[in-house]
Computed example of a mutant assay.
Amino acid sequence: MTDPTTARPTPVLDPLPEILVAPVVRAALLEDLGHAGDLTTAATVPRDLTGSVALVARDAGVVAGLPAALLAWRLLDPGVETRVARPDGSPVAPGDEIAVVTGAVHTLLTGERVALNLLSHLSGVATATAGLVEAVAGTRASICCTRKTTPGLRALEKAAVRAGGGANHRFGLDDAVLVKDNHLAFAGGIAPALAGIRARVGHLVKVEVEVDTLEQLREVVEIGVEPGLVDVVMLDNMGLEELAEAVAFVDRRCLLEASGRVTRETAGPIAETGVDLISAGWITHSAPILDVGLDHR
């Protein structure tokens, strides 16, 4: 199988506004600095020493989170200089230089761990996403994330998904309606749940309903999709035959999302059933990091 991290084109990405990123980076720096600052660097490195360091990929992958990583140094010292070689969305191979940072060595060393933590984790998210995107290439399916994100890092992790070629699901509880099994259980079923949505939700809000069986799907289509209330149906943990049957039954009347235990190996067969979306929580909550080192130059 082709390695998606070295063959894929670099997407054009709009950077997150710094006002969203800075609180996350500042909190990480405060956590690391504690009450006394960087004791090791203060004790071993002359205060007036300057130098340069390079962020270098140790593994093949896709870059994400570079602006956040570089911001760690700029928050410590606005005078640091940065040169970006591979922006977010870029594929990298082992040994590739991602960026170079120049400034006071005290700043470079103090910000190192926060910068690497952010860059390695977010690049891992982008790399995991790129693997699934490559697995479904040639089908109609898009790979999307979920709300299974690290608390406080949702905007950054969802941006990393986009850097890996994926799409974003809803960002929070307030930007779409997603009716899951527990909602249906407490509401008393599909019909009363949809009646409540019809009475309370504005016309600009997208509505998705999760179903576990084809019988539930038929009910949602009859009372939700055909009247134009439901935009997306999530097919949760269905087998390939059920997915294919669901696709044939819906016949493009709404979007269909497959979810549940999606891996690099299963994503392709799932996509070939004809679903529109494949969601995976692990690309944000459990993606392995991309190993990135900080090398003295």
Rank of each mutant, 00 (worst) to 15 (best):
200 R>M: 11
200 R>K: 13
201 V>C: 07
201 V>I: 15
201 V>H: 04
202 G>V: 03
203 H>I: 08
204 L>Q: 14
205 V>S: 04
205 V>Y: 04
205 V>M: 14
206 K>M: 09
206 K>Y: 06
207 V>Y: 05
207 V>R: 03
208 E>R: 03
210 E>L: 05
210 E>R: 06
211 V>F: 11
212 D>H: 10
212 D>C: 01
212 D>S: 14
213 T>A: 08
213 T>M: 09
214 L>V: 06
214 L>H: 05
215 E>H: 05
216 Q>T: 03
217 L>P: 00
217 L>M: 11
217 L>R: 09
219 E>F: 06
220 V>H: 11
220 V>S: 05
221 V>S: 07
221 V>R: 01
222 E>Q: 15
222 E>R: 15
224 G>R: 03
224 G>Q: 06
226 E>C: 07
227 P>S: 08
227 P>Q: 08
227 P>R: 11
228 G>H: 13
229 L>P: 11
229 L>Y: 02
230 V>S: 10
230 V>N: 08
231 D>W: 12
231 D>R: 10
231 D>H: 15
231 D>F: 11
232 V>T: 13
232 V>Q: 12
234 M>E: 11
234 M>L: 15
235 L>T: 09
235 L>F: 12
235 L>N: 01
236 D>E: 08
236 D>C: 07
236 D>A: 12
239 G>R: 06
239 G>K: 03
240 L>D: 02
241 E>C: 00
241 E>F: 00
242 E>H: 13
242 E>W: 01
242 E>A: 15
